[in-house]
Design a protein around this nucleic acid. Structure first.
Length: 478
RNA sequence: GGCCCGUUCGUCUAUCGGUUAGGACACCAGGUUUUCAACCUGGGAAGAGGGGUUCGACUCCCCUACGGGCUGCCA
C-alpha cells in the first residue's frame, strides 16, 4: 500500500522558481570578487532550474562606460556563465524608479525634504563632533500644503523606533536598531533615483527571489528592506558573502596584481579550472575539491558558504587548473586554446598545426596548468624543421650522442611504428652503448623538440611519425 | 566615533557539545621515472587571547585584540 503522498517530490517543479541576478557597476574591469559573486548566483539558479539575470547598474553617469559593460559581458562569457534574457540597464528604468518614489510619497512612506547640504552638515556636526550622527530632517512631518517652492529630495520615512532584522542565509539574523539609520534619500533633487531605491525596485520588478551579493551590502539590506515593506513587496532571501582578499589578507586591490577576471584569462588559465577554484573559494561541500560545473550546480547551496573572507592562492589555482586541463576533452581544449591565442593577440594556428596539436593533446594536457605551458610543451609539434635546439637542450648533442642518433636512423626506417617496437629499439641502442635510457633520451629530446622539457620521446615519435622523426634525427646528427 | 560582520594548519576548508581536530594546495624527506607534469609513502603544521555556561567546548554566551564593512543627493 503506497499512498500518494509518499511519492518523492524531487521531480516536481518548484512552487516558487528561483531567480537570481548579478548586478555589476560598469565602472571598470570585472573584479575577480564580482566574478565569484556572479558564479554563486549562476550556480544557485542553474542548480535549481531557476533563472539567472544580469543587470548593469549604470546610474552613475559620470563613471559608467560602455567599454566597461562590454568587459563585464566578455568576462562572464569567458567564465562560462550564461544569463537569461537581455542584460537590463538600470539607467533605462529611471522613470519607473521615480514612479515608485512618488508612490511612496503618496503612501506617506516618504516625504519631500528641502534641507540644503549646508543645513544637513551643520545639524550632523551639532549632534556629534565628528559629524557621524544620523541626519534628522525637519521636513519629515511637515504637511505637504506647507511645502515651499524650492528644490527638494524625496526621503524615505524610515521607522525610528524598534529594530530591523535582516534574515541572512549566510550571516544569520542581523539586527540593526532603527534609531541608527537615517531617512535615506530615494530620489535626488534632480529627480534621478538613488541606487538604494533602484536596486529594490529592479529586484522586485525582475522577480528576484534570492539576492546573493558581497557583504559590503549587509547594512544596506536593512534600509532596502524598509522600501520593500513600504511598498508591500516580498523581501527576497538575502545571502551576503564575504569579499575576497589578497594573499596578504588585505582587501584585494591593484597592488596585489591580478584583480580583473580578464587578467586571469590573459594568463591562460582554463575557464573550467577558474570556475572550480572560484566556487571552492568561500564555499565547500565536505571534502570535495575537484568537480565539474554539473556537480557544482547539484551541490551548491547557501549553507555551504563561509562567513570569513578568503584569500587568493595562486598555487592552488594552478593545481586546480592543471587537473581540469587534464580532464578536458581534446577537441574542446583545442578550441579553448585557440580562443586563448586570439585573446592574447598571438598568431593563430595553421590548419596543419591545429591538426597535429589535436593529435598530440593526449600527451600534453596532463603536463600543463595553463595555456602558455601547454604551448611550450607542444613546441615539438608546432615547429617545423629544422628544429633549433635551445641552449639547455643543445648540451645533450655532443659527438657521441650524435653518433648514436645517426646509427638509429636505419633501424627506425624499417621499424614498425608502435610504442612497443620503438621501446625495443631504443632500449637496445642504450644497452649497446652501455648507457641508461635517460642518457639517450636527452639527445633524442633535443633532436625531436629542441627542448629539455617535453612529453615522452615515444609519444613525440608517434605523434610526428616516422619520416619526420628520421629527418629530425638526421638534422641533429649532421 | 557609532553600528554591523568576521577570526580552525602558511593558504582554502571539514567539524554543526564528546574526533588521536579530517581533507586539499603549498612545504620537507623518500620512492617511481625518460625531462617536466603526474603518481605512491612518510613528515612537520591549526581552534587569536581572556573569562564564563556545561559532566564535557573549536562548537553556546561575554570581554579584549586584530581584520573587514556601513555610516554619500557613489554603486
Amino acid at each position: 500500500m503506497v499512498s500518494e503522498r509518499l511519492i518523492p517530490m524531487a521531480d516536481a517543479p518548484p512552487a516558487h522558481p528561483v531567480v537570481t541576478r548579478f548586478a555589476p557597476s560598469p565602472t571598470g574591469y570585472l573584479h575577480i570578487g564580482g566574478a565569484r559573486t556572479a558564479l554563486f548566483n549562476w550556480l544557485y539558479a542553474r542548480g535549481r532550474g531557476g533563472r539567472f539575470l544580469l543587470r548593469i547598474e549604470d546610474t552613475d553617469r559620470e563613471r559608467s562606460t560602455p567599454e566597461a559593460t562590454a568587459a563585464i559581458l566578455h568576462g562572464l562569457t569567458w567564465l562560462g556563465l550564461d544569463w537569461d534574457g537581455e542584460a537590463v540597464s538600470q539607467f533605462a528604468r529611471k522613470n519607473r524608479h521615480a514612479e515608485v518614489a512618488h508612490e511612496m510619497l503618496a503612501r506617506k512612506a516618504a516625504y519631500k525634504c528641502f534641507s540644503t547640504k549646508e543645513e544637513i552638515d551643520g545639524q550632523k556636526k551639532a549632534a556629534s563632533e565628528d559629524g557621524f550622527a544620523p541626519f534628522r530632517s525637519p521636513w519629515r512631518d511637515i504637511d505637504p500644503s506647507d511645502y515651499p517652492d524650492r528644490p527638494f529630495v524625496i526621503r524615505m520615512k524610515a521607522p525610528r523606533e524598534g529594530r530591523t532584522v535582516v534574515k541572512d542565509a549566510v550571516q544569520g539574523d542581523v539586527t540593526i536598531r532603527n534609531s541608527d539609520l537615517d531617512d535615506m534619500i530615494v530620489l535626488r533633487s534632480d529627480g534621478t533615483p538613488v541606487y538604494m531605491l533602484a536596486v529594490v525596485v529592479d529586484d522586485h520588478d525582475m522577480g528576484v527571489t534570492h539576492v546573493i551579493r558581497g557583504d559590503d551590502h549587509l547594512t544596506n539590506a536593512a534600509r532596502q528592506q524598509m522600501v520593500y515593506d513600504a511598498m508591500g513587496w516580498t523581501v527576497p532571501v538575502w545571502a551576503h558573502i564575504p569579499l575576497i582578499h589578497g594573499p596578504d589578507g588585505k582587501k584585494l586591490s591593484k597592488r596585489h596584481g591580478a584583480v580583473g577576471l580578464g587578467d586571469y584569462q590573459a594568463m591562460g588559465y582554463p575557464a573550467a579550472g577558474m570556475r572550480n577554484y572560484l566556487t571552492r573559494l568561500g564555499w565547500s561541500h565536505g571534502d570535495e575539491e575537484i568537480f565539474t560545473s554539473a556537480q557544482a550546480m547539484a551541490w551548491f547551496d547557501l549553507s555551504g558558504i563561509g562567513r570569513a573572507p578568503a584569500r587568493l592562492d595562486f598555487k592552488k589555482l594552478e593545481n586546480v587548473c592543471g587537473r581540469h586541463m587534464a580532464m578536458a576533452e581534446d577537441a574542446a581544449l583545442l578550441q579553448e586554446l585557440q580562443a586563448y591565442l586570439a585573446a592574447a593577440g598571438q598568431p593563430a594556428l595553421s590548419a596543419d598545426q591545429a591538426g597535429a596539436l589535436h593529435r598530440a593533446l593526449y600527451c600534453l594536457k596532463d603536463r600543463a596548468k595553463t595555456f602558455p605551458e601547454l604551448i611550450e610543451m607542444a613546441h615539438f609539434v608546432l615547429s617545423a624543421r629544422p628544429i633549433v635546439p635551445d641552449d639547455a637542450s643543445a648540451g645533450a648533442l655532443d659527438t657521441v650522442s650524435r653518433g648514436i642518433l645517426h646509427s638509429l636512423t636505419p633501424q627506425l626506417q624499417s621499424a614498425s611504428w608502435t610504442r612497443e617496437a620503438l621501446e625495443v629499439i631504443l632500449s637496445a641502442a642504450a644497452a649497446a652503448n652501455g648507457l641508461g635510457f635517460g642518457k639517450i633520451a636527452a639527445p633524442l629530446r633535443a633532436a625531436l623538440a629542441g627542448r629539455t622539457v617535453t612529453p615522452s620521446v615515444y609519444d613525440m615519435m608517434l605523434v610526428i611519425g616516422r619520416d619526420e622523426t628520421v629527418a629530425r634525427l638526421r638534422d641533429a646528427a649532421d
